[in-house]
Nucleic acid binder design. Structure first.
Length: 894
RNA sequence: GGGCGCGUAGCACAGCGGUAGUGCACUACCUUGACAUGGUAGGGGUCACAGGUUCAAUCCCUGUCGCGCCCACCA
């Protein structure tokens, strides 16, 4: 016999191991159409967090559902090398050992990262197993695998040949801590409290005249090469074309007219530092200004490209040289102090503004003039935008398409080179004189060089690696074997659904679209399901610093993977953030327990699958009603999953299991199950077994473990066979409408009796008869037929016909055409009963009034849809009848 | 500055033109032979606010307020 509760801890891991051993997750076994989901590859050295639990639960629910539907389901697993994140972790470790990657050297460092990967790389995939994720592990890929690396080189070389990857010298976002370029997306604005300094730049050759500029970065004046004013600004018109002398360097720089300058902002005159500001860079290009860098790669002052002139009262080279090598903040303070000393600091205002920071390093990003590799994202974006416009890819919720379009239509060149070591080395080799050879292999590059020079040349490979997202962008086809034309590629590209969070729409989703369309000529997926963020139960973002991080695995340990998964499904509405705490999971665990106990009840009552059972041949109304309700639950679950409404799917399962199967079916079935042996009981048992099987299959995508355990316990199939059992479909039910009508009446009858008894405080132990007045023959027959159930559930002792005169102390219930009398002499407070009936009457009257007001409105009758008018007329009639009967009941009370 | 989303019972959320719903919490009662991780019944909402459209608005439109997010922005 089943235990009293489901002991998840003792079965989850062995069930999972069993599935895996049996190859139950493997694609290529089902005859149906392929169904494919590509996992968003987690960081290989990461650990499972709540966001993973959310996204992977949803993906697993979808893949299990489709697999049961007979589709050839592939959920492609794998991990990402996560360049920056992983390199930072290992570097931090090295720092703890008083060493660094520079000291180790490239090769030894990479060796070390691979070691770290070997040591921690299995963690996340093991944790995915704990969740129950049915990934096809035999197909697991890693972005630095040889196959995927080959895809990366192929894509790089091809795009380079097509002119879509190129090398360029321009400003990039430079992260001084990582000492690498990063892309626009890896830059986050953060509000910083600082100051605006108003600084006087003396006008050349005009004693006493000066131009005041306002800046938040006074130290950059070392690299100024102009001051810009608006061409229409009368205040500065006379100065355009003249020069000012820069404090501290003594250099003369022109005053230029440029519409970039905003007369409303600051002083209307803006200092131009082309090598350290994106806007200034553009101004510099327009005016042919020099672009000296004054910061090195660690964002320290360097004067290598700056000329210094001694100018009395304005520039003292001895002071300025002391700035060399200072950090940005220190240099800023020193520069401000010196300007103040020189009387050039007009004023200082406090100022709060947004400053770019590196999303990984957290330090202030510095625009720096360097040579990098760029990808022409604009060209690649066009087809991706078109695919969404044409509906070949849809976002769910659709709202996200706007966000996608806004970014894609204004996309900037994508800086793809990183000055890191952990990642895909850029397949470019440099020869004599800076010549570049982009090739799939070194040999190929050497051949190119030899062809060019007529002799072998010494080549050196570009030291940089590619942005991690470059390889993730190829994931939907690189994992399937591309550039080989494998059968898997033909079968599983495009994938069906991509499930992910909105935070990587630009980083990843958009790049997969661009790369997939360019190299495969088709979209990488048809639907992009965007879910929200997991927050704590108070709606706060989870973070280590807040200490509110919930570990999904501890929830799995405590409540079981099924409970966590079911809670996640219940909470996942369209695109909303979800608030998940232990309480939610505990509630879901109660549901798992409820299911378990419903099964236990079935087991105790001889419910077992009957081979050859035909639902269409079932006769008992209770059984027909149950089968019909199950059909409805299946339809709801299917519709919900089709629409990616995991909350509705979970809700349909929950309501059917708890409110239909447990609350009514099991209770109404008890008299039969506990009664005499015979065909009626056999039919009930067989029907219950059939429907329990439906419930287990319906719930399997959300709660795979408990359902599989019960499936096996009841012998629905061989061990571990639920995962590939056929998904339930609607069965034929004879007389479904009549059964719905009859059971609907039974439920209302029992509920009405219970309500009155509870309100009248009738002791549960006391059974009372029910006397029918004005009952139709059908009602009278039903009341007799369901007497056993009514006795169990409504404490009804017998059903009789009401005498002409009402016995004293009777409670009265109006139910459809009939009035039920409950003689409870001595228990009924006449005043209380009168008050109760009056309340009922008031409710009915209110309803009647509302409907009448509508029907009295000529416009309503004339303009509303006919069925709405009819519906209201029917409601009015019903309310009138109810009021009449309640009036009669009140009159009988005296 | 531009854009998006959200504001429905104490809490978490559905609903989104035609009688306001679910779960938890709450109150009362119940050791009823699956389950107290249970059962039965009940109370609780001018659907943020103000206008408009409509026969009819929680639902559509406009505006206001509050909350959150994204993009841009270092004068």
């Amino acid at each position: 016999m089943l235990d009293k509760t489901f002991d998840h801890a003792s079965v989850e891991q062995s069930l999972y191991a069993g599935w895996e051993r049996a190859g139950a997750f493997a694609a290529g076994q089902a005859p149906g159409a392929p169904y494919t989901i590509m996992i968003p590859p987690p960081n290989v050295t990461g650990v499972l967090h709540m966001g993973h639990a959310l996204t992977f639960t949803l993906q697993d629910a979808l893949i299990r559902w489709r697999r049961m539907q007979g589709r050839d389901a592939l959920w492609q697993p794998g991990t990402d090398h996560a360049g920056i994140a992983t390199q930072m972790v290992v570097e931090r470790e090295l720092a703890g050992e008083q060493t660094s990657r520079q000291k180790l050297g490239r090769e030894a460092f990479l060796e070390r990262v691979w070691q770290w990967k070997a040591q921690s790389g299995g963690a996340i995939t093991q944790q995915l197993r704990r969740l129950g994720a049915s990934l096809d592990w035999q197909r697991e890929r890693f972005t630095l695998d040889e196959g995927l690396s080959r895809a990366v080189r192929e894509v790089f070389v091809t795009l380079h040949e097509q002119g879509l990857i190129y090398r360029d010298r321009r400003l990039v976002n430079w992260d001084p801590k990582l000492q690498s370029a990063i892309s626009d997306l890896e830059v986050e604005s953060q509000e910083v409290r600082g100051s605006v300094w108003h600084i006087r730049y003396p006008v050349e050759g005009d004693d006493g005249l000066h131009l005041t500029v306002a800046t938040t970065r006074p130290e950059t004046l070392l690299g100024d090469t102009a001051v810009a004013v608006h061409p229409d600004d009368p205040r500065y018109a006379a100065l355009v074309g003249r020069h000012v002398v820069l404090p501290l360097t003594g250099r003369r720089v022109p005053v230029v007219a440029d519409t970039y300058s905003d007369p409303e902002k600051g002083t209307g005159a803006v200092k131009i530092t082309p090598a350290h500001d994106f806007n200034d860079f553009a101004v510099g290009q327009r005016h042919g200004l020099p672009m000296p860098s004054i910061l090195d790669r660690q964002a320290r002052i360097t004067l290598a490209e700056v000329e210094l002139h001694a100018v009395s009262g304005l520039a003292d080279p001895d002071f300025t040289r002391t700035l060399e090598g200072q950090g940005r903040e220190a240099a800023r303070a020193a520069v401000v102090a010196e300007l103040d000393r020189l009387g050039l600091l007009e004023r200082t205002e406090p100022n709060t503004h947004q400053v770019p920071h590196g999303d990984r390093s957290g330090v202030v990003i510095e625009p720096l003039l360097t040579e990098q590799w760029y990808c022409d994202a604009k060209t690649l974006a066009g087809p991706a935008v078109a695919a969404v416009e044409q509906g070949r890819i849809t976002f769910v919720p659709k709202q996200w398409e706007n966000t996608f379009f806004a970014w894609m239509r204004d996309i900037q060149p994508w800086c793809i080179s990183r000055q890191l070591w952990w990642g895909h080395r850029i397949p470019a080799w440099y020869g004599p004189g800076g010549s570049v050879f982009v090739a799939r292999t070194q040999a190929e590059a050497e051949a190119q060089a030899a062809a060019r020079y007529g002799a072998p040349a010494a080549l050196e490979q570009d030291p940089d690696v590619l942005d991690t997202w470059f390889s993730s962008g190829l994931w939907p086809f690189s994992t399937l074997g591309w550039p080989e034309r494998t059968p898997e590629l033909a079968r599983h590209y495009p994938s069906d659904v991509l499930v992910t969070g909105f935070d990587i729409i630009f980083f990843w989703v958009a790049r997969m679209m661009m790369m997939g369309l360019h190299f495969m000529g088709d979209v990488p997926f048809r639907h992009v399901v965007i879910h929200g963020l997991v927050r704590d139960e108070r709606g706060q973002k989870m973070s280590k610093s807040k200490g509110n991080v919930i570990d999904p695995l501890s929830l799995v340990d405590q409540y079981g993977a099924d409970a966590l998964r079911f809670a996640v499904c219940q909470l996942t509405g369209p695109g909303r953030d979800i608030k998940l705490g232990a309480a939610r999971v505990a509630e879901a665990r109660s549901f798992v327990t409820k299911l378990w106990n419903a099964a236990r009840f079935c087991e105790m009552n001889g419910v077992a699958p009957v081979s050859g059972f035909d639902p269409a041949g079932v006769r008992a109304p209770l059984c027909r009603w149950l089968l019909d309700a199950a059909n409805q639950a299946v339809a709801e679950a299917d519709a919900a999953l089709e629409a990616f409404r995991f909350d509705d799917y979970a809700g349909a399962c929950y309501r059917f299991t708890w409110n239909v199967f447990c609350d009514w079916f099991v209770e109404l079935a008890k008299p039969v199950l506990m009664g005499a042996d015979g065909p009626e009981r056999d039919e009930l048992r067989a029907t219950a077994a059939h429907v329990l099987g439906t419930v287990l299959r319906l719930l399997h995508p959300a709660a795979p473990f408990v359902t599989e355990a019960l499936w096996e316990a009841f012998g629905y199939g061989e061990a571990l066979s639920l995962i590939r059992a056929p998904w339930p479909t609607a069965c034929t039910v004879s007389g479904a409408a009549a059964a719905r009508d009859e059971l609907g009446w039974v439920i209302r009858f029992v509920t009405a009796v219970r309500t009155v008894r509870a309100e009248m405080n009738v002791p549960p132990a006391l059974k009372a008869p029910v006397l029918l007045r004005d009952a139709s023959p059908q009602t009278a027959a039903r009341a007799q037929a369901w007497l056993d159930a009514a006795t169990r559930l409504g404490r009804v002792s017998e059903v009789g016909v009401a005498p002409a005169s009402v016995p004293a102390g009777c409670a009265q219930i109006v139910l459809d055409e009939a009035t039920l009398l409950l003689p409870l002499a001595g228990l009924i407070d006449l005043d209380a009963e009168r008050a109760r009936l009056s309340r009922e009457r008031a409710r009915a009257t209110d309803d009647l009034e509302k409907v009448r007001r509508k029907l009295d409105n000529a416009d309503f009758v004339a303009r509303a849809k006919a069925d709405v008018v009819d519906e209201n007329r029917e409601r009015a009639r019903a309310a009138e009848r109810e009021v009449t009967r309640l009036d009669a009941a009140l009159a009988r009370l005296g």
